[in-house]
Nucleic acid binder design. Structure first.
Lengths: 336, 336
DNA sequence: GATTTTCTAGTTACCGATAACACTAAACTA
DNA sequence: TAGTTTAGTGTTATCGGTAACTAGAAAATC
């Protein structure tokens, strides 16, 4: 690897001069600059970031921690985050926690050790508090996306679970449904809690008596809706739901798969709605009725807040950005 | 940030001793080890990787460069790569070239500068040769996935474009199709070239005279199949294709969207097949007939080869791993 | 008991870059 | 003309960690 010293020797200047040329700092005579630049070119010099971040205490690397890289929602988040990071001269280190607190912890340690300048993180759940506190202790700025964490006050970019839930449920109610089941994520995740709360509240406001047996929490990862779905459809007709509100795209898909296995048709027998598109390309199979969140912007805005925090030109108080969902009504919830 | 010196002072030992405890190297008395470990715990010490990689000349960071992070194919590659990397004690820096040589170049420079130990890369095209040569010059091991590059001999993990194409086409021919169009990626990408070659060869072997006007190359990113599709269906009946072989998942989806816009039904009027599943979760919308490549394994094996190369315990000659596709026949190519 | 070996721990130098300061010669000021 | 700026460049120390060497004390050997 070519170093600043190799350049210096060949150009007959001091390493410091080379550094100044590379960083465009300090006064350099035009003659020296040209001479040095020619040799930099010639020797294919690429600065060593490890050395740089050792003195500068900054790496220009940010980290994005998401919980599922195969989920198009996070994939779009990543794309947005990457675009913004690149635009601002930062790189992105992508980590995937798989909804696991342990994996997340390992990554957080790794990130600190790598000297990232900041972290944009979709926390695995409320236990993540511990990991976030580790970040705080190491004075690494972070921004939460999609989910907040109990007991942590920080910048965040989130969706509006209440509005999304309300719109989805009102749509279902408008379609004549009154027995609506909820298949939700685990309660240690803020969005799941909020969607649950909204679910009961919206039903109440609509004058529908909610049946607690119609609501379940399942893991995002195992995503084992089958048993619960089977229970639902084996309820007596008078209790059996005619619609299912799935908390996210993958739960919805899995639920529909379960329904199909049980020979239940969607939407004829049971309507299904959820948050976020399961398709990487929207409108290819315009089937699911969804509350679509602006995932790209989650990433984009998140990185923006993060960089503001890092560079210290943001407001003192924490910023909470709430991005509203857009409801897209498609055939999974429409009577023919 | 806590350093080895903080620990050393508090434990009343030399920094070197702390280093030895942290790395489990050299002889340390049980007593000292315990003392030091306690303080490490207490002070929440996390090693500084920049410093480490400066002396060790290795970072334990690998990079995965893919061309489209929103494509489920690459998402699965990433998952596989990540799993293997983690298992081997490495981290993954994910970069997204968006099929652009320029973006790829920027990333390659960044990676070298970051001191990654190795790169797993799906090259944007044949021009990537230049970037790969930069890697070689900087003595950074790399492995190609999915695509090879003219003039570069290195380890690689690829699919079998010939077999996949053959099986897809034979299936179509078996369904009675003889006018089969090809909507392919750009010719500077090896897989596109190979699929094109296979397409003409298989048709020839089947005794079908290929019509060059039925084959087109479009960009993976713009993905503007509409014009070509419109041309196709406005051909006189005797020339008009009854099936389309799309080179990849996104082209296929886009093609189907175009067909729908033009009121052409799939598969009734035109059958469509392609490489790779467009769905992150297979079998949710079991619609497209595909040659499914083991994307997860592309990543997993790729990282394995890469680490072998880095750690120098692989065979001297370059390894070429070819992973065969599995053809999955679904409704997009089946007559009712 | 003297010598060698083995443990355990410390010292020094260096990785590549840069901040902070030092220095020289030319340009400017009074 | 002497004194002061200023432009351009060099020197030194440092970031945090580790390799390579050194050194003292205990254990083993003869």
């Amino acid at each position: 690897m070519t170093t600043i010293y190799d350049i210096a020797k060949k150009a007959n200047v001091s390493p410091m001069t080379v550094s100044r040329v590379v960083n465009n700092s300090g006064k350099i005579s035009e003659k020296t600059r040209e001479k040095v630049e020619k040799i930099i070119e010639e020797l294919n010099y690429i600065p060593n970031n490890a050395a740089r971040s050792l003195t500068l205490k900054q790496s220009k690397i940010l980290s994005l921690v998401i919980t599922d890289i195969t989920n198009p929602f996070y994939t779009k988040v990543a794309r947005g985050a990457e675009d913004k990071a690149k635009q601002m001269g930062y790189r992105l280190l992508l980590s995937n926690s798989d909804e696991s607190f342990e994996k997340e912890s390992e990554y957080v340690d790794m990130l600190i050790s790598s000297g990232v300048d900041g972290v944009l993180i979709a926390p695995s759940g409320d236990e993540s508090q511990k990991n976030l506190k580790t970040l705080i202790k190491n004075r690494i700025p972070f921004v939460l996306i999609d989910r907040h964490v109990k007991g942590i006050d920080c910048d965040l970019v989130m969706g509006d679970s209440y509005q999304g839930t309300r719109q989805l449920l009102e749509h279902l109610i408008g379609q004549g449904h009154s027995k609506i089941a909820l298949i939700n994520g685990p309660t240690n995740v803020s969005t799941a809690r909020e969607r649950e709360k909204a679910y009961f509240e919206v039903l109440r406001l609509a004058g529908i008596e909610a049946d607690k047996k119609l609501a379940a929490n399942i893991s995002y990862m195992q995503n084992d809706s089958y048993k619960f779905v089977k229970n639902l459809i084996s309820l007596p007709e008078s209790k059996r739901p005619t619609a299912i509100f799935a908390a996210n795209n993958f739960i919805a898909i899995n639920t529909i798969k379960s329904l199909r296995q049980l020979n239940v048709r969607v939407p004829e027998d049971i309507a299904v709605v959820c948050f976020d598109d399961p398709d990487p390309i929207p409108d290819f199979n315009p089937f699911l009725t969804i509350a679509a969140q602006p995932a790209y912007n989650f990433g984009y805005m998140g990185i923006q807040l993060l960089i503001e925090r890092i560079e210290g030109n943001g407001p003192a108080e924490k910023q909470k950005v709430i991005l509203p969902p857009e409801i897209i009504i498609r055939s999974s919830s429409l009577k023919k």
